[in-house]
Structure formats: structure tokens, C-alpha cells
Design a protein around this nucleic acid. Structure first.
Lengths: 130, 130
DNA sequence: CACTAATTGAAAAAAATTTTCAGTTACGGA
DNA sequence: TCCGTAACTGAAAATTTTTTTCAATTAGTG
């Protein structure tokens, strides 16, 4: 389970699994690519500063990833695969499951780079906007 | 040529190709994924506000893309293909050319989405950090 | 070459993020 | 189970980033 793994990573790094951190984590589990304010709305009991600090911490542990797809910063759980579809007209962000990557052509081995995860953004126009 | 196409897009949208805008464009051509301050250092004669406004404009014209890979906002010319390799240890960002995408598995047609461009971020550890 | 809508820059305002610091708490070890 | 301590929190303040305002300037059409 997601939260369990996150707690493990925190403890392993010498960090405490506080109620505030768990609340932020739960907010992140509920929906992907939320803005700071959206996250905050899901855990109003946690102070603003703590949300920032928690997102930082989770980011440095590789649990959360910050992304900016044109509007402000957004946060999401760092899945190993992540595939976004972004409409350049209306700005809508959606996700799709099937991974279009050919692992053979990833820069593993080559370039001496060890691949752990990836995030793909496909830009274009959604059905509604065409 | 890049700059020519950009000027065309600006004119076409009813916008003027001013010296300031051209200076920002030239800065962007010199290097990809720069921070605002890095861009500004390459065209110190352009006012801060104008740099922001120009990046906005170029963004809305699809010429420039803003991205955030963990540190602050960065800007890059919006190539149709873009492949980043990000080291989670040292934060270094590099690019690679070969496109590992299988076009057949992109969400074109399916999902009613018209694909125009993509950006791929591969996360892992670079040679130096391993 | 003149006209006009678009553009610029400086200052001010607003928004986002980070720092400070005193008080609180999680949790490993006795 | 309880203690001690390093880690954590929240409020306010500071800092940084981004946007707005507005009077003066300019690119580019006609």
C-alpha cells in the first residue's frame, strides 16, 4: 500500500510520520496533479508552512514530484510511469494508462544512466476543443 | 529557421516583433531549460517585466514551454519532441535525441486527442552519481 | 511619413515561498 | 511504559517571484 511505503521511507530517513504529513499524503492520494491550494483544501487543519515543508520532504524522498505544465506548480505522487495528455486550448490535464515507451530505446545502459521512472506529457487538442 | 518562424507566429497573431522580444528569443535559442534569471542575464537590456510578458506571449503562441523539474520554473523552446534525462541525485538535466515513443501507442485517434508534441522526462541516476 | 494599437519600463501591488523561533511531539531506548 | 531529545509545527516576518498599473514610446500598416 502506498501510504505504508511512504511511512517506511520517512522513518528510514530519520523523519517522523506526523499526523500533518499523513494528512498531506492522503490528500495527494485522492487526486493527482493538484495545486498547493487544492492540496491545502483537503487538509485545512495543516498549516500552510507545513504543507510546503512536507511537499519538499516528500519530494526529496522521491515520493512526490512537482510539475508545471503551464499554469502554476502542481504536485503528484511519483509513479514510475506517468502519462499526461495536455490540451493546449483549454489547459485540461488528463492521464492515460498505456505506456507508449519502447524500453529498448530508453537511455539505460547507454549514456550510463540508470532509469528509475518516467513522466510523459503529450500536448495537443482534446476532443471537446476540436 | 527558428527565429523566422517565431516572428511569423507573432505577426500572424497581431503582435509586434520588437527588439526586446527578439532578444529574449535569442537567449532561448542559446540554451534550453534556463531559469528566468539565466535568460535575463543573456539580455540584460530588457526589463524584467518585459521578459515575463514575452515568455507569456511566446508560451501562448506555442513557441516556448515552461517546465518545473523540481527546482523553480524553467523555460525552453517547444520542440515537437523533447526528451529529458533528470538525475535525482544531483539534479542535472540533460537531453537525448532518440525518441523512445511508439507512435502507434500514443493516444491519437483513440481518446479523440490530436497529438501535436510531447515531452518526456526520464528520472534516475546519472553516471557520475552512481 | 503619419497614425494608432501595441508595447515598454519603473514603481507598486499581489502572490508565492522561505526563514525564524519558541513551543510541541513522535518515537527509540531505558 | 515512560523519558529524553531530536525532529517537527505554526504564526509572523522576511524574502522572492510574478502581476498590475499607467504614462511614455514605438513597430508597422496605409
Amino acid at each position: 500500500m502506498r501510504l505504508g511505503a511512504a511511512i517506511g521511507k520517512m522513518r528510514g530517513g530519520g523523519y517522523k510520520a506526523t499526523p500533518q504529513r499523513m494528512a498531506v499524503l492522503r490528500a495527494l492520494v485522492e487526486e493527482q496533479h493538484q495545486s498547493l491550494e487544492e492540496i491545502r483544501a483537503r487538509c485545512p487543519e495543516v498549516g500552510l508552512v507545513t504543507v510546503y515543508r512536507t511537499l519538499d520532504l516528500l519530494g526529496s524522498l522521491g515520493i512526490v514530484r512537482r510539475l508545471d505544465l503551464g499554469d502554476g506548480a502542481r504536485y503528484e505522487l511519483a509513479e514510475n510511469h506517468h502519462h499526461h495528455m495536455i490540451c493546449e486550448s483549454c489547459g485540461d490535464i488528463s492521464e492515460f494508462e498505456e505506456c507508449p515507451l519502447d524500453p529498448e530505446r530508453l537511455p539505460s545502459g547507454r549514456a550510463d544512466f540508470e532509469v528509475r521512472a518516467h513522466s510523459l506529457e503529450v500536448y495537443g487538442r482534446c476532443g471537446a476543443c476540436r
